Simulated assay, not measured.
Amino acid sequence: MHPSKSLAVALAAVVMAATTACGSAATDATTASVANGAGGVLNLSAKQDRIVPAADPTVAAEVPEAIRKRGTIVIAQGAGAGDPPFAFPASDDDSVFIGDEIDISQLIAGVLGLKLQSVNTSWEGLFLGIDSGRYDLGVSNITVTEARKDKYDFATYRKDNLAVEVPAASTLTFTGPESFDGKTVAVGSGTNQEKILQQYDTDLKAKGHKGIDIKYYQDDTGVYAALASGQIDAYFGPNPISAFHVAQTKGTPQATKIIGSVSGAGSTLQGLIAATTKKDDGLIRAVRDALDVVIRNGDYAKVLAKWNLTSEAVPTSVINPPGLPRDNR
């Protein structure tokens, strides 16, 4: 999955506006923050105090010799102007990118005993850089697909889920497609979630139900305006985007909540997000083992909790699991 860039930019703009509304840029975590899902405060400043785990000599020894000798690992995010909560400009310094994918990158680099060189590029540039060897690794909300497995190796670190986001005061519950029957639901055009929602609608109508009134908006700011005003019952989109928005709006009149989630791969497969390397370049085993170290020692859980993504935790990292089928969008 790759989330809507327009929504990401819109969210980043709201964060910047909220933290600089008093006329001066935020300078520390107390002024550059929003509530996170755990009831704490999400730090949006450039001073992140990232977790840097100790090197694991056994895992570090698995890194290809050329990277070990260099002493650095180049990990890229294809965030463009910014993809909250994955990678986006800090509220007080737009030259510094923060986000959960950068925190995950730091965990990997730390266990491997390497200095992290984090690079932000476009989504297309991310894959071109991996292809050319310019980037050692991509950590950028990349979904495992069967087509991508032809060219890349994967080590999983999050579930690829879609969320049902509703106003905080909504009484709507979600237990499956039937929960959307007769409801008005917004979804991004041309996305995998649109395909899933359209199938829900088709299946409901085939059973004699009303079906779903699917709505589209020109920009994603419009989606949240419609949700706040009651024009739509729910928004069906990438879970991390909704989780960030929930944290962002907590305690405001526009507050929302997530009432359920489904796999971004559909009902028959759990979609997975993975760190990505050029196929057969020898790095993926070390990345997988590094992720397993931080999953076991709790550092991984801390990063996910920080960004309100605990629901997407995986129990272990897997190399090249089944991915979205080739006929999937």
Rank of each mutant, 00 (worst) to 15 (best):
D201E: 11
I104A: 00
A243H: 03
G82P: 10
A60G: 08
G40C: 15
S179I: 08
I75L: 03
I130R: 01
N320L: 10
N192R: 12
V166G: 02
P53Q: 04
P57T: 06
R329Y: 14
G211V: 15
M1L: 15
I319V: 15
A234P: 08
G133H: 02
E312T: 15
E101N: 15
D203I: 12
R68N: 06
N320T: 11
E62I: 04
T156Y: 04
V314L: 15
P89E: 06
C22S: 12
P3I: 01
V144N: 06
T145M: 07
P53G: 12
S132I: 09
D94W: 14
R70P: 06
L269Y: 04
A12P: 01
V246G: 05
P238G: 11
V111S: 03
K250N: 05
G251Y: 11
I130L: 15
D201S: 13
L197S: 11
G237L: 09
Q270K: 10
S132L: 14
V74G: 02
P177M: 07
K115Y: 06
S33G: 02
T221M: 10
A18H: 04
A169H: 10
A55P: 08
S45I: 00
V96F: 06
S6V: 12
N192C: 03
N320C: 05
S189P: 09
L7Q: 13
T30P: 03
G129I: 11
S170H: 04
D219M: 08
Y224T: 07
L304C: 02
F180H: 06
T316H: 12
D233I: 04
G251E: 12
A38C: 10
A87M: 09
A79I: 07
T316W: 03
E178N: 15
D233M: 07
N239K: 07
T156S: 05
R285W: 00
G133A: 07
P325E: 02
T191Y: 14
D93L: 05
V15P: 02
A17T: 07
V111F: 00
S132K: 08
E312M: 14
E62H: 11
R158C: 13
Q198V: 07
R329W: 12
P85I: 07
A90D: 07
R329D: 08
A226S: 15
D100C: 09
Q270Y: 08
L114V: 12
E146H: 02
M1T: 15
I214K: 14
V139S: 04
